[in-house]
Design a protein around this nucleic acid. Sequence first.
DNA 1: AACATCGTTTTAAAAATTTCAAACGTTAAA
DNA 2: TTTAACGTTTGAAATTTTTAAAACGATGTT
Lengths: 162, 162
Amino acid sequence: MINEERLRKELIQRFGDAYKSFGLNKLMGHVVALLLYAPEPLSLTEIAALLGRSKGPVSQILRRLRDHKLVRKVWSPEDNRKDYYEVEPEIFENAFRNNFDLIKNNTRIATQLKAKVAAAKDKKMETLHLRMKEMEAFYQLMEKHHRNFLAEWIAEKNNLVK
Amino acid sequence: MINEERLRKELIQRFGDAYKSFGLNKLMGHVVALLLYAPEPLSLTEIAALLGRSKGPVSQILRRLRDHKLVRKVWSPEDNRKDYYEVEPEIFENAFRNNFDLIKNNTRIATQLKAKVAAAKDKKMETLHLRMKEMEAFYQLMEKHHRNFLAEWIAEKNNLVK
DNA sequence: AACATCGTTTTAAAAATTTCAAACGTTAAA
DNA sequence: TTTAACGTTTGAAATTTTTAAAACGATGTT
């Protein structure tokens, strides 16, 4: 016999740590874990209560999670007073993509600076120029593989549900 | 004519922001940018001076950067009193791998919990079980693509240097 | 052997982030 | 129209993280 209560707590704690190590708010991880676990959507008030938190931060976190497309609102036909939340079906893809977009965004730094550096024929600039070029090439290749990965995943996911 | 001083400052500032958005210390980004830019290796004292910081935090940051294999020590034949630092030639690969290892590590959560959940035949567990299975499959596929990417990159990198 | 220079560690202050409590606005039910 | 329940925003307190200063240890030079 497995202890359900313990399992839920462990999932919540571990997701909190994981999110924190990615530079995100620990509470974000807690909310995601709770919603991953919950068989039914939960309202903000319920989430706050289950996590022993006040509604303030939970409200802010839920907005961020919606911005990141990790969580979504659903409307309950029987109770349209409350907003209910559940994890996005594409939560893993989206989490990965968010991370990837961040990296891609940073690649622009290299691209832009490379252009500026290219204008200078200065000897001291050569090292930097080469490095920026390498950085740009690296992330371009990464992007290509990312696309391949997503395409393959969609196919695999369909098999999984069956 | 391009303003070298401005370019260096921009690179440093942008890398700081980028590192921060990944949950890392801003100063880490500054040091990495400075070393990416510098045509020659720099000592800890020089780095601290160039960034207008004290030696304490720079010392700690350099250790973390070495742990992450983003920066390495080099010994100068002419001055073996000081430790000199430069970026690792594989800095981009390693930065990516560190990020990936983090994700991989978190995948273990899913794998372990999946095993625990599988033991329970509880109806409420079914949703969670399916999600954990999906998470595991997602990251396993990701790992495969990561390997392919690195192999292809090594080949491309050689062409770049030529 | 004494001195000087460099990097590390520690401790305390400063800054940033997270958190809650309470006020506020909105919407639906009575 | 009033009331009640819910989510959001705001301001202040608490916590965490970052930072610098200074003490410390090690290593090479005189």
